[in-house]
Computed example of a mutant assay.
Amino acid sequence: MLTAICRLLLFFSFAATPITFPAFDVSMRSVADIPLPQGFERVPVAPGSFAEYLRRLPLRKDKTIYFYNGAVKPNQSLHYAVLDVSTGAKDLQQCADAVMRLRGEYFFGKGMYDSIRFLKGDRTYYQFAAYLKNNAADTRGSFLKFMETVFVYCGSYTLEQSMKRVNDVYSMQAGDVFVKGGAPGHAEIVVDMAVQRSTGKKIYLLAEGYMPAQDMHIVLNPVNTKMGPWYELTDEQKIVTATWVFDKGQLRRW
């Protein structure tokens, strides 16, 4: 009951105040194409890094969010763009699952199967390399089936427990995750960052999945709508996103 009430409060609190967002440009192909506020430039990322992978994530031309069953999400006002990443046909790939999916996709693309591992509630790990030895061949289908198992038995709590706390929010990096473990819980991943050279001010983009399972998307900034999907690093204790409110102490790193 508490979970349902929290979701309703979040939905109506943000839906009641329309968000004016910048026009979506269908020519954008990836996160790297999302325009920056004036005076900002993207921070350098290492070639082949997780941060570079996230910046290269493809965007769909259609910015409509669909649920896992093909239904259109009723509220389409809280996001800027939709990531071109499959959701699956089951109600499994939700918030923390979306974060783990991106992490797994990164390592799968690099052939680093030993690094595709996610913490379970019993403090052991689901490991893709072991899964391949016992169940399947090295195929993309095998990877997606493995991730479905992860989605069932892992979640925001285990994700939070498997990551290290970032004590200084100003040291944020692309790939870091805001995560609140538990029920209700939520997770959003930093997919890009930029800096204003004249002031040193940093901004970042957040992506999320949600419940029920739905297309991953870039969330809008409900506090400063002029920033579109960009969030500014500040001294504020609370980070108010389009669908959740995090404490800055909930920032985690792989």
Rank of each mutant, 00 (worst) to 15 (best):
M112T: 03
T158I: 12
F146Q: 10
S115Q: 15
L159W: 05
E148A: 12
G104R: 11
G121N: 12
Y153Q: 09
F151L: 05
Y125I: 05
T158V: 10
T124R: 15
F108K: 09
V152L: 11
F118Y: 11
T158W: 07
K145T: 12
I116V: 14
D114R: 14
T149L: 13
E105G: 03
K145F: 04
E148N: 15
Y131V: 06
D114W: 01
K133M: 09
T149H: 10
F151K: 08
Y157G: 01
G111Y: 03
Q127D: 07
L102T: 10
T139P: 03
Y126F: 14
L144E: 15
M112A: 14
Y106K: 08
A137C: 00
K110C: 00
G155S: 06
K120V: 01
N134G: 11
F146W: 11
Y126R: 12
F107W: 15
F118K: 06
Y153R: 13
L132Y: 08
M112G: 00
F128W: 12
T149K: 13
R103T: 01
A130D: 15
L102C: 07
Y106G: 01
S115C: 09
S115K: 15
N135P: 00
Y131T: 06
Y113S: 03
R140I: 01
D114N: 13
K133Y: 05
R140V: 03
T124F: 02
Q127S: 14
Q127F: 01
K110F: 02
T139G: 04
F146A: 06
Q127C: 13
K145G: 00
F118A: 04
L102P: 02
R103Y: 08
N134F: 09
T124G: 04
T158Y: 03
D114T: 12
D138I: 07
L159Q: 10
T139V: 05
D114V: 00
K133I: 04
F143P: 04
S142W: 11
Y126H: 14
L144I: 15
G109L: 10
Y153A: 04
E105M: 15
E160V: 00
F108H: 12
F128P: 06
D122W: 10
A130G: 03
Y157F: 07
F146Y: 14
R117N: 01
S142G: 01
Y131Q: 03
S156L: 02
K110D: 00
D122P: 05
V152A: 10
S115H: 12
G104W: 07
S156H: 06
T149Q: 14
F108S: 00
Y106D: 01
G111T: 04
Y106P: 01
Y131G: 07
D114I: 00
K110P: 00
N135S: 09
N135H: 15
F146K: 13
Y131K: 09
T149Y: 08
T139E: 09
L102I: 11
G141S: 14
R117L: 04
A130Y: 05
